[in-house]
Every structure is written in structure tokens, then in C-alpha cells.
Design a binder for these strands. Structure first.
Lengths: 339, 339
DNA sequence: CATGCACCAGCAAACGTTTGCGTTATTTAT
DNA sequence: ATAAATAACGCAAACGTTTGCTGGTGCATG
């Protein structure tokens, strides 16, 4: 076992021809005679020759590998995304190098370093919650490695990104509730430093304006997304001086906690109070308390688009010069459950 | 921007010394004087030198990369597993190359090929449902690339693997139900060709024997895991000539379907009929109908252990000779929900 | 004063491929 | 027939590192 892998050299030696000829023969280069091509290919087959990719990577200064850094693989949003990423990469015979930051800024930095060393051709990243500086990404770009951000994108200019516009979905969500007759709509929003939090707020306000209703800031409460914090937020809404009959929750987990808390306080879900949330979960239908609708963020699609964007950048790069930045926004969309 | 990456050569040129000296200086080799070391390191720092890993990989015939092939990243079981894998790999400064087979045998083969070309140091794999031959893995091993199987393991000898023993958990599950007074316990099992299906059956039988009860094969029905099939299976159990008061479901999804179907048929869950399932899901607590208990399979742990095993094999390899095969079985464990 | 021994540093090969250019036959056009 | 074009292949450099071996100092030892 463990035979030495045959090399191009070996083939050349056996056939008494030069390595360059073998190489060209294997690549169907036009300057090699049909006879020799055949002989080379046959022997290659016979010896089970496989080109040494590491040698090729080295020689070509290209690895056909894209790095992916995201916060947490176990989160269903990201695992859907990576699934889409891998699919597109695979179809284009690229390979995926993986790293999770666990929302740790330092680890994110280390990962970018490590990936740079691995000479990835490009990077896909969804930044950690604690990322506050972006030099580590700039470093990659300066080294000619394009970076595409997805979903969690930094608030800096001159980057490529694809993100989901939470505003549209939020507008739809709030409008849906308004149409159902709700007038006092609460929102359990996320941590204030998150981009996605701001978008939800904007969407809420826009929807109110569109319907010529007054916006009451006290109806938007914030949670750090822990269960306790979610409970607390829900408590605030229940105790609000106005009677809140509907709640837009930051995501499904928050919604589940909120609904749970409401039930505890004898506020009946889908009777006294209604919920709309953002879809991270595939199995809302099996839940004890179901939100009436949920905003879909298309993680798989985002992953795919991001990868396509990156691959595009990789081919464009050869042609140089272009300094424009790609931005794609996919609209989120409200999915109303047929109760 | 896009400065040419400085090389060891460049440093040598600037310092008027040889490349070998620079290389050794950077590695703190004992045969280099302190003075030169300092000079080299300073300049390296200044130029922002980074060793070209692809060159090193090539030169050392080692990539510090492990491949991971699994069926479906979006499945929570596997995303937990990969999360554990990445963690251990990262801690040991290994890198993870990713591929999903989508339970497609051909794609699995292609992935192993691709990974072999990438010269991964080792492979972690959970085989696809349709994998019926294993030559593609043997090929890797013959090339000196160790393969460790996890969770979904082939039924062939002489392999390294880590798997979860479903028997123990199943015995616990059935025993639990027996202790609760149930005497007619149904089981919705999976496709018959799956290893995990057999183990569940075995566990069921063992538990019955242990309690000196007669085993009734007609109480075990099979599903292909689709919702329709799950419904059908549940129907069979409900219509069974004996009155089934408890059901062990293949996994949480199956359980959810089964419970849903039971409810539709006016068989009240956790009153007329009780469920135990296998935990793929983190949020059973939020479900409308909850199983009374669930068998934990520790995907994250399996991933970790598998990676540790692989890394161990990688270091052992240097010492050669050892042809033994590692096997680790982690026991599954029943988690009873405090209703 | 010669010998030996640390100590430092350089030379060159090697890893496996690709590719620009040069060389030799062979064919084609004039 | 002769120059010119073409076909088929080889030479050697290059990609960036590591590493075995060799060589040259300076210094203490015999």
C-alpha cells in the first residue's frame, strides 16, 4: 500500500520523453502529436496518475478555494447559508474552507489570517457581533483576495456585500397586522448596535407612516436575545399603558419566548395577542404557539448569491482595473401561515 | 495596493544573505547567530512577510487540512457535528475543507476525489444513505490518507469510526415507557437498510426481553421519513389490534408528524398516547405536542471525538506500522423532559 | 604552533508543475 | 530546388520553502 504517487516525471522517464511534453499532452496542447498524447494518457491511466494539486496551486498562485467565516454553524440560518455556498462552489469546482467565529472578534481575526495563509482565492464572511474594526479584511483585499460580506455586513463603504433588506419584510409584517385591525403594535427588537435592529425599526416606522398613523417609540423595546431579556421585553409590552394586541418579534426564538411568557401571564396567544416574527426555523408549524406570519430571509439564497458574486469577482480580477463594488439586496418577504 | 507578497528571497536579497539563512533564522534554528536572527525578523516584520503556505504545503507534502464530507449541512444533527469538528480542528491549527453529499452517492465519490487532489491530510465522513460501495474511501487510505467515519458508518470491517450506540438509548426509552406502565409500545422506525434502524429494533427487543415481556414484531412499523409515510405509520399503530399507548419515533421530525396525526385522529397526545423520540432538535420545549422524553445522540461530541481520533491517526502515522483500527462508541442517552 | 571544535552562514538540490523559447525534422509554397 | 512555414518535442527557468552538506571563521586546547 501507500505507493508513492506517480508524477509527471515518472511518466516522462518511462516513456523517454520530457516532462514538458507529458504536461502538454495531458492538457491536450496543440503542439503535441496525437501518437504521443495517446501514449502518455494511457500510461497515466495505467499508473493511476493524479496531478499534485498542491504543486499546481503553488505554481499557479491560485487554490480554487474560498474561505467562509461565519458566527455559528449550529444556527440554522447559517447552516442553510453554508449549504447554499457549498453547492455553488462545488458546481464551479471550487472548494470551501470553513471557520466559525463564535461571535468572537479575536477568533475572527485569527481565522482571516489563517485563511490568508492558506491562500484562499476569496472570502465570504458574515461578521461576528463583536466585530468593531475591519482592518483584517482590508488586509486581504490589499493582498488581492476579494471579500464578500453576507447577511451580517459591516457599516463601512467600499465593500462587496449581499444582504437581506429587513425593511421590506418589516413593512409587510406591520402592514399585515394593521390590515388585520391591530392599532397598537409592539416590537421586540434586538441589540441596538446591530444593523438588522435598525432596519426593523425603520420598517416599523415606514409602515406606520404609510398608513398615516402616529409612531409611538415606546412600543419598540429591545432585548439582548436571551430568554430572560425576551421575557422582560414582553413584560414591558404587556404592561404598556396602551393595550398591545400584536407583536413583531426579532426572530422566531424571541417570538417563542414572548409567546411563552404571554401564555404564562394568561394573555392568550392568537386571541388576545398576535405575533409575527422572522423565520429562522423550518418547523414553526409544529410549535405550541404559532406566530401568524414570519419574515423569510432566504439564507440559502443569500449564500448562493454571495458565492456567485465572489466567483464573478475572481474572474473579473484577471481583467483588473474595475474598482466598483457589488451590492445585492434581496428583499425579505412575509410568509403568512394559513392557520 | 496589491503589493507583491514579500518572499524569503526578497529578505535575503535586501540583507545580503542567503535564503537558507533567512529560513533558518525565521525558524529559530540553532545554527544562526543572534544578530542575524534579529535582523531577519525585523525586516520580515517590516515587510509584513508571510510564509507562502502553498509553497510549504507543497514542499512538506502536508496541508494541515482535514476534509469533511457529510450528507446535509442544513440538518441540525450535522451542523452541530461540523461545529464540533471545526472547533477541534481550529484548536490544533488544522483547517476544514467542506463538502456535502446530499445523500448522493456519485457526489460523495466526486468529493472524495476532489479532496484527495487537494491533498487533505485526513478525511472525516458520514456516508450518504445511498452509499453501497466503499472503494473510494479505500483509495484514500491506500494513498496514506486516513479516513474516520462518524455517525453514519459503513458496515465493513477494518475502518476507524465513531458512532452513537442507539441500542442503549432505545433500551432506556422503552424501559422508561414500561416503567410508566405502558405495555403495548409501538415503534415508528426508519428505512430498513439503515444501520440506525436496526439498532433501534435491537434496543426495542432487548428492553422487552430484559423485562420478560413478549416481543411483538407487528408493533414495529417502518417509515421512509417523509411526512406522508410518517402519517401512514402512525395510522397503522393507531389501528393496531392491540391498543398502543406509547410510541417510540425514529426522530423528532417523525415524532412531530406522528403526534400531529394522532391529534387529527382525536387521540390525545400525552393522555391517550405517549411519545419518546430521538433528539435532533434543540427546541422541543416549544412544540405544540411534546414527546415525554428524547434520546440524545451528542452530534457535537461525536464530531469532536472523530476529529480527535483523526488527528491522533495523523500523528501516529509518522511512526508507521500500527495497523489497528480505532472504534469509539458513545452511548446515546435518554433525556426525560420534566413535564 | 598546529589541531580540534564551536559557531555561523552559504550552496544547491528537491518538491511537481507549467510555460516561453529554442531546436529539429517535415511539409508546403515558390 | 530552396526558402519558408509548420509540426513535434526538449530545455530550462520559475513558483517559495526546507534541509543536508560544505566551508570559513575565531578561539581554546594540547
Amino acid at each position: 500500500m501507500a505507493d508513492k504517487q506517480p508524477t509527471i516525471k515518472e511518466i516522462a522517464r518511462r516513456l523517454n520523453i520530457s516532462v514538458s511534453t507529458v504536461s502538454r499532452a495531458l492538457h491536450d496542447h496543440s503542439s503535441i502529436g496525437l501518437r504521443t498524447k495517446m501514449r502518455v494518457k494511457e500510461l497515466a491511466q495505467e499508473l493511476n496518475y493524479e496531478p499534485n494539486q498542491t504543486a499546481i496551486f503553488f505554481q499557479q498562485r491560485k487554490t480554487f478555494t474560498i474561505g467562509v467565516i461565519l458566527p455559528e454553524l449550529a444556527e440554522s440560518f447559517f447552516s442553510s447559508a453554508i449549504s447554499g455556498i457549498e453547492d455553488v462552489a462545488y458546481k464551479n469546482s471550487y472548494t470551501v474552507l470553513l471557520g466559525q467565529s463564535h461571535d468572537d472578534f479575536e477568533r475572527e481575526k485569527q481565522l482571516t489570517e489563517s485563511m490568508k495563509k492558506h491562500r484562499i482565492d476569496g472570502l465570504l464572511v458574515s461578521v461576528s457581533k463583536n466585530t468593531h474594526t475591519y482592518d483584517h479584511f482590508k488586509l486581504l483585499e490589499n493582498a488581492g483576495i476579494p471579500v464578500v460580506f453576507f447577511d451580517r455586513i459591516p457599516t463601512i463603504p467600499a465593500i462587496h456585500y449581499i444582504a437581506c433588506n429587513m425593511i421590506s419584510g418589516t413593512v409587510q409584517a406591520v402592514s399585515y397586522l394593521l390590515k388585520k385591525g391591530h392599532r397598537v403594535i409592539g416590537m421586540i427588537n434586538g441589540p441596538e448596535n446591530l444593523f438588522a435592529t435598525g432596519e426593523r425599526t425603520d420598517g416599523y416606522i415606514q409602515a406606520m407612516q404609510k398608513n398615516r398613523l402616529k409612531y409611538d417609540p415606546s412600543l419598540i423595546v429591545h432585548s439582548d436575545l436571551s430568554t430572560e431579556s425576551n421575557f422582560e421585553a414582553m413584560q414591558q409590552l404587556i404592561n404598556h399603558k396602551r393595550k398591545v394586541t400584536a407583536v413583531v418579534a426579532f426572530n422566531d426564538y424571541v417570538a417563542m419566548d414572548a409567546m411563552h411568557y404571554a401564555a404564562l401571564k394568561k394573555v392568550e396567544v392568537n386571541k388576545d395577542i398576535w405575533f409575527v416574527s422572522y423565520a429562522n426555523l423550518p418547523m414553526v408549524h409544529y410549535l405550541k404557539y404559532q406566530p401568524a406570519a414570519s419574515v423569510e430571509q432566504f439564507p440559502n439564497l443569500q449564500g448562493k448569491k454571495a458565492t456567485e458574486m465572489l466567483l464573478e469577482l475572481l474572474t473579473k480580477k484577471e481583467e483588473e482595473g474595475d474598482t466598483s463594488h457589488y451590492k445585492i439586496i434581496v428583499d425579505s418577504k412575509l410568509v403568512v401561515y394559513n392557520e
